[in-house]
Write a protein that binds this DNA or RNA. Structure first.
Lengths: 73, 73
DNA sequence: ACAAAATGTAAAGTAAACTATACATTATGT
DNA sequence: ACATAATGTATAGTTTACTTTACATTTTGT
């Protein structure tokens, strides 16, 4: 799994949404803060259900928050 | 992880895309056929990168292929 | 300056997402 | 009818996605 191809703008969106903290987002989507940190930093990719929850928390489509560059190019 | 809240229409899209087989889709997105079977059947949810690849294989947004119902309602 | 909050790092444990392999059943084409 | 292809089920192993806990560092507000 080429997780270094997956990028996101979660930190940007947290800031834009009332300067939400990592803990607040974590509480909102039902995961630990560590998970948010890891995903923000690209340490690992979220599962799809979690991606949905994050997208829902920001009111945006998944593809607006996460970008995936195909490495097979 | 409430994976029973995640549904998909992969089988439908396979049919509509030249009656693609599970193996062809698997080859296309770079996973085993078992993975496709499991995801189609809702056995487990895909990771986000894989969801991106599947979406790209069908030329549709992720949210058009997968539906996630929030269970906190 | 100082306390509290927010963020960052690490590590070990658990569960889920996959892989590989094998066999069975069903569907398809001739 | 028969061979092949497609699908389905099972299982064990590996890797990744998370959780928990702890501590460190930085930032923020007064």
């Amino acid at each position: 799994m080429a997780k270094n191809e997956l990028t996101n703008r979660i930190r940007r969106l947290r800031f834009d949404n009332g300067e939400m903290t990592q803990q607040q987002l974590a509480d909102r989507v039902g995961v630990t803060r560590q998970t948010i940190i890891a995903i923000e930093a690209g340490k690992y990719a979220p599962s799809l259900p979690l991606a949905f929850k994050i997208a829902r928390a920001f009111g945006k489509p998944i593809e607006n928050i996460f970008k995936y560059e195909d490495e097979s190019a």
